[in-house]
Structure formats: structure tokens, C-alpha cells
Amino acid sequence: MSAELEVVRLDKHFAGSPTPALRDFSLHVAAGTCTAVLGPSGSGKSTLLRVIAGLEQADAGHVRIGGREMDEVDAERRGVGMVFQRSLLFPHLSVRDNVAFSDRIRGASKARARDRAEEYLGMVRLSGFGDRGVDELSGGQEQRVAIARALAAEPAVLLLDEPFSALDPALRSDMHDLLDAVRSQVAPTIVLVTHDRDEAARASDRIALIEHGVLLHESDVHDAYRRPQSLRASVLMGGRNAVRGAVRDGIHHSALGAVPVPGAADGTGVMVVRQEDVTVQGDEPRRAAGTVDSEALAFGGVVEDVRITGPRSEVQVRCGDVLLHAEDAPTRSRRIGERVSVVIPVGAVHVVAE
């Protein structure tokens, strides 16, 4: 029940809009994998899904599913299932008959369609809910039914358009676990649209970053965080540290000094490092400030700000002309004005274009 998905150089422009919704956008999703399309509101995420589903026609480019071009194929014949932020269940049908709907449309008997509906309700952990009305469900249960209904159609590609964004954090976590269970059983090809990078990292194999209709970055989850393809991609993934400078012979020169960046091309470049990879040490640092060795960099600095952000503290340290952001356990009491050492693993350093 899965197929390779390719979108090739898609362009889409809406009348009255000064900028394209999609611009030369290409993406490959391997069969049975999940790619999260992540970007701010208005970036083109939902338009991309609608073009894949056949609900919008692209101005240029192609959509291929299982190697077959879909450009002239009607939406209902593409083998695509779609789940939206709102469940859009049929209010006049029971839960069971909502899930059975696609089989009934395809000509299955009522008994057969209902039996299969029970299988998919079990898959989304709603066994015993078949006789309920839609108005008897919670928001999370509605989305489970919507996913079961989409899966019952046996789509080659399952498109999820921010389906969990209206749920509270605990329910969203439950839905991510559910998605894992569904993938282990039927391995659909999934494109998940979200504006939440934590959700993208939790639920997907790969992340595609989009802004103003343009693909900024596409990779596995690790590289999306720690090897972004541009400064803007780093920012969209929540990166806080960006040190401008220039690379010469594998060394990045900046206000922080000379930092080894093996493999980086010569020229201007921005050194980025995740704040969670930056360690703040107190009065007895393991390395002297200002040193560089094969494993780590160390810089002396002064704590400029401390903010508690849930289970972590964000510590801002002024190292000369550079302000570095680090994450620390809130149990470690850092004082504004305290002199500290900042330690960064060499492997955590990455250089991107401006």
C-alpha cells in the first residue's frame, strides 16, 4: 500500500498573489517512508499537498506516483488519501460507516465494508467505537477515525495536512505513537505538513524545509538540525548561533578566532552550531578558554542573560564581540555577569552560506 512519490519542478501561482505559492519545487519521497514538509504559515506547504492530491493544478512541473505521471489523472483516481487539520467526518454516519465509506463507493457489500472498517478501527486503537456517532468523539478520536478512513481506501500515498495541530501536547504525543504503529503495520508513503519542528523530527524519516514556495533543505532529521544547507534553513530548524566570517584552507576566521571546519569551501561563510551542543562550564573549565584541540573548542565569556524554558535554561554568553546561546539544566544556577567557559565539540561546527 505504498509507492514512490516524486514532484518535479512544480510552479503554482494564485491570481492576486505577488509571489508564487510554489517555485521550481522538487521532492522525492521513497516508498514506505515519511517526509515532513516544514515551514512557516503561508510558505506553500498545503498548496504542495493539494497539487499532489490533484485538488489544485500546477502551472508547471509534474507529480509522479509509483513512476506514473499524475498530471492528467483525476484526484479520485490518484491513489492518494488525505487527512486535514479538521477531521471532516460525515456527521450523519456512524464511526464504522465513516471508515467503510470508501469500500462502499468501490462497490463492496455493506457487510464486507463494515468488517474491513473494524480492522482499521483496531489499527488506530478504536475497537468498540464503531456504533458511536461522530458527535460522541473527542478531537483526538475524530482524527483517529479520519486516519482510519483514509487508510481504508488503501492509498499509495497518505497526505497529512497538520492533522494534530489542534490537539493538546499529550494527545499529539499519543498521535505520534499511533502513526508509528500504523507505519509498522501497513508502511504507507507519507507526506506530513507541519509548522512544528519537534513534530517533524518525531514523526518523520526526512525533513523538507519550504519558504515562499522554495525548497530550502531536504535531508534526514539529523542533518536538518546539524548540517543545514543555508543560514535560513538553520534558523527554521531553531538554530540560535550564527558567527559570520571567512574560510581559508579549512579554517573559519571570525571574531571568535580561528576554528577548524574540515571540508568547508574557501570564501565567506557563517559558522553555525546548535545551542544544545554548546556547554557552559563554571569556575573550573576542563579546557582553558581560547584553546582549540582535536575534540573541542573553548572560549572565555561572561553570562549576559539566563532564561528558563521548561526543562532547560537558555544561557547567553558574551565572548568578545560574539553572543553565543547555550542550553543548560535549570538546576545549574548561572548568574548574569558570571565569568564562564563555553565549550563546543569540533564535530558540532558547520559552515553555511549567508
Rank of each mutant, 00 (worst) to 15 (best):
E72Y: 07
V292D: 13
S254P: 01
K110R: 14
I52T: 13
R144P: 02
Q141P: 14
R335Q: 11
D223M: 02
P285L: 04
D59M: 07
A156R: 15
L88R: 14
Q275V: 12
Q143D: 09
R9T: 11
V182Q: 00
A153D: 05
V235P: 00
M123T: 01
G282V: 08
D249L: 06
R318E: 06
A150M: 03
R307P: 04
R334T: 06
F101A: 06
A329H: 11
G16I: 08
D74Y: 06
Q143K: 09
V302M: 03
R172F: 09
M70P: 08
V340E: 00
G290K: 02
G282T: 11
Y225C: 13
L160W: 02
G238F: 03
A298D: 04
E6V: 09
I251Y: 02
V302D: 01
R232L: 05
H176P: 05
G67W: 04
Q275M: 15
V270H: 02
C319A: 05
D283V: 13
S234H: 04
G239A: 13
G32W: 08
D24S: 11
G140H: 04
A264R: 02
A208S: 11
L158W: 04
E154I: 09
S341R: 04
T19S: 13
E284H: 15
V247G: 02
T279K: 13
G250M: 08
A246Y: 10
A353W: 00
S333D: 10
A246F: 12
I207S: 08
S219T: 14
A58F: 06
M271K: 00
A258G: 05
L159T: 07
E69D: 12
V182N: 00
L27H: 11
A208C: 15
H217F: 02
V29R: 04
R202H: 07
H176L: 10
H92P: 06
P285E: 10
D97K: 07
S341M: 06
F129R: 07
R77I: 08
H217E: 06
A170F: 10
E56P: 12
G269N: 01
H325E: 09
G337S: 12
L179K: 01
F25L: 15
E69F: 14
D11P: 03
T309N: 12
V214D: 01
D277I: 07
L5M: 13
R77Y: 12
F14Q: 07
T33Q: 15
R68C: 05
R332A: 11
S46C: 09
R227Y: 04
E295Q: 15
A170C: 08
E304W: 02
A148Y: 05
S43C: 07
A265F: 09
A36H: 10
F129A: 12
V352K: 00
V191G: 07
P155G: 10
I65L: 05
R68V: 15
G250W: 11
R77E: 14
